[in-house]
Nucleic acid binder design. Structure first.
Lengths: 127, 127
DNA sequence: GTCATATACCTTGTGACGCAAGACATATGG
DNA sequence: CCATATGTCTTGCGTCACAAGGTATATGAC
């Protein structure tokens, strides 16, 4: 079953890029109101057309960290029919953290943008 | 010894954000022409006003990865006076990789920007 | 001479964390 | 009873930024 995909061989940096952004992403997705795990995964996939998709195995540890940090509060809901769901909601400090992280992201992205578009790319080949 | 710094306790996400961007940053800094390690560190600090600064302990492993991957070529220079320097220069594949990484970064940053600025943040409190 | 400082390179250890892979539980419909 | 969908959780792997330390060469001060 040699389904080796050449395109996939060139490792993507997306995983690494997400590292600093995931908590921000999740907090942001919780800003409009509470949501449960699977819903967050679906929301992210939908809102970015799959560009920033994550799996549940990635999300749950993030949610756990956010809960431990006091950024989200948790509520179980067991409906008459269906599987129990764990709803997450931003706390006040969570909302403040969201603002802080958004600011950090913006600052970083701006620095990257400025660096990459710098006119300092002269072609003085000293050879 | 309660010299706990509250400000520092809020961990910065900058370290994590750099993760996916560092190779891109270094390749980009090498685009104008060859440079040696300490020079790259100084260049990055200068061009971003310290926003994206790294230490040499971070850089050298990156350069080693880039060399192993064939993205940069290496040349030692031992001047009459002064410490020997190791000059790095982009290869052709390195230049291609730079283009690829820049594209990946742009795509990621665009997705983040779109997500964070989405008008989808309705305040429909379904209570 | 030697001692401090600056330049320049390199290595080790630590902590963090995305994600694949799997497990588990509850429903629904053949 | 068995497959599929929904929903949550856990383990292990591999990757990597960074601090902290080390080495070697030059220069200026005393």
């Amino acid at each position: 079953m040699a389904v080796e995909n050449d395109a996939e061989d060139r490792k993507s940096i997306e995983r690494e890029l997400k590292r600093g952004a995931l908590e921000l992403i999740v907090l942001h997705l919780l800003a409009p109101g509470e949501a449960y795990g699977y819903e967050i995964v679906a929301k992210l996939t939908a809102e970015t057309n799959g560009t920033l998709a994550i799996t549940d195995g990635t999300l749950y540890p993030v949610l756990y960290r956010l809960e431990r940090a006091g950024f989200v509060s948790v509520r179980w809901e067991t409906p008459q029919r269906g599987v129990p769901r764990k709803y997450y909601q931003l706390t006040d400090t969570g909302r403040a953290e969201l603002v802080r992280l958004k600011r950090e992201w913006t600052s970083f992205a701006a620095a990257m943008s400025k660096l990459l578009s710098a006119k300092g790319v002269r072609d003085d080949d000293d050879r």
